[in-house]
Amino acid sequence: MKTLFREASLFVSKVNRQHIQLFLLVLTLSLFLLGAGAPAAEGGTGGMTGG
């Protein structure tokens, strides 16, 4: 448990502002694409549409 906590702390300390910005950028773009044209159309027995 102590080891796990220490490893988590080390990981969090390595996450810097740029990582967070990159994550937000990718998340924003992914959401944008999902809304603008990337639904997963489950056609019952299969098939997907991209927009």
């Binding site: 639904p39 997963a40 159309a41 489950e42 056609g43 019952g44 027995t45 299969g46 098939g47 997907m48 549409t49 927009g51």
Partner: peptide
């Protein structure tokens, strides 16, 4: 694209999509 295309008729929504 559909595994069972015959089940989709004109006028129907394609699954739960926006199509």
């Amino acid at each position: 694209i559909a595994l069972a295309p015959q089940q989709w008729q004109a006028g129907e929504r394609f699954g739960l999509s926006k199509d």
